[in-house]
Design a protein around this nucleic acid. Structure first.
Length: 153
DNA sequence: GCCAACGTTGGC
DNA sequence: GCCAACGTTGGC
């Protein structure tokens, strides 16, 4: 049972979009970074917890939690020439990119803002703060527990 | 919307 | 396999 943080731009796909999905479940696709891909393909497993993070917006921070409800499988968008996520170097037998499905668990009453995270000593080694560009990041159990204590609902 | 930081590509 | 050029990310 591990913890992860997934970033998304709410203008593109925010937690409200996830909440509006049938079964509040979506495919996390379009990840096109090798380090993030390796986590999706090799480390993230069913029942892991995902913290949903909003980037590039007014209230930057963690806005809710989701749970992983599938194993990793090849991202279908890499095979679709119409998709912006199409990758000519991918083949069905040798896919380059992977997806998983996540299901919304809860939306926090208010986000845990990046500003707040930056002020907390126990969170200073979060990947958010060093490898800030990685869109799929590991979160330790200690970090997760610290974050959950900040939720007041 | 700017731009620094960082990941990827490709010529050599 | 180095590294300059280029593209993208994401906080501000």
């Amino acid at each position: 049972m591990a913890y992860w943080l997934f970033k998304s731009e709410p203008d593109c796909y925010g937690i409200d979009h996830l909440a509006a999905e049938p079964k509040q479940t979506t495919r996390w696709d379009g990840v096109r970074n090798f380090q993030a891909r390796n986590l999706l393909r090799d480390k993230i497993v069913r029942d892991d917890t995902v913290l949903f993070y909003h980037s590039r917006c007014k209230a930057i921070g963690i806005v809710g939690a989701a749970v992983v409800v599938s194993d990793a499988y090849p991202d279908p968008l890499q095979f679709d020439p119409q998709s912006p996520y199409y990758d000519a170097k991918s083949t069905q037998s040798k896919p380059r990119w992977y997806s998983i499905d996540i299901k919304l668990q809860r939306v926090f009453n208010r986000p845990i803002l990046l500003d707040t995270i930056k002020q907390i000593q126990a969170l200073e080694s979060m990947a958010l703060r060093k490898q800030s560009r990685l869109s799929v990041q590991p979160v330790t159990a200690q970090e997760f527990n610290t974050l959950m204590q900040l939720i007041d609902d």
